[in-house]
Simulated scan of single mutants.
Amino acid sequence: MDYRQTMIDEPSMLENAYAIFANVLEFNVSGSPVNAKYAELRAAQYIRWYCDASYMASSPSEIWEQELHDPPPRSDSKPCPPCAGAWQFMQTQAASRLGLFRR
């Protein structure tokens, strides 16, 4: 099944598939995903259903799987760790080398 053209023509399908993947994905305490393949399967089942209405997933989609959430705020309420300053410094240095900043 070639679903790529549908993703181009109807971006909301890709948005919903991404939402399903992100909502189903779970992490352990160290931040590693514990069910990435299952999250991938649920997103793939949605894509297949979207492109082929006769397809039935092994278990029906749940409302929470497809919920879209607002983007995070532009600034964090929690201060950045000290290493974040080094990242900003590296970005500034790279931008300076590319001539994006004038001194």
Rank of each mutant, 00 (worst) to 15 (best):
M90N: 02
L100V: 03
E62A: 12
Y18C: 14
D52P: 01
E15F: 10
Y18R: 12
I63C: 02
H69W: 13
M1Q: 06
F101I: 08
V29R: 12
A36P: 00
A57L: 00
T6P: 00
Y18A: 15
S96C: 02
M90F: 07
A22R: 15
M7F: 15
S12W: 13
R102N: 13
I63T: 14
Y3V: 15
D9V: 01
S54H: 08
M1E: 06
R42G: 02
R42F: 00
V29N: 12
P79D: 03
Q91E: 10
A22E: 10
M90A: 13
E62C: 02
I47L: 15
D70W: 04
P73D: 09
H69Y: 14
L14C: 06
N16W: 00
F89E: 13
T6W: 04
S32W: 05
E67C: 07
S58I: 05
F101N: 04
S75H: 08
M7G: 08
L25A: 14
L14V: 08
V34S: 09
R42M: 14
F21M: 05
A43S: 13
Q5P: 00
E65H: 05
P11N: 02
M1P: 06
C83W: 12
P60V: 04
C80S: 12
Q5E: 15
E67N: 10
Y3Q: 07
I8Y: 12
S96Y: 13
S58H: 11
N35I: 04
A84S: 06
Y38V: 12
I8A: 06
Q66I: 11
L14I: 01
F21K: 05
P79C: 02
Y38W: 06
Y3M: 07
M56H: 15
R4K: 11
A19P: 00
W64V: 07
S59C: 03
A53G: 01
S77E: 12
S75E: 13
P82R: 10
P11Q: 05
P33V: 04
C51W: 01
E62Y: 06
E62N: 09
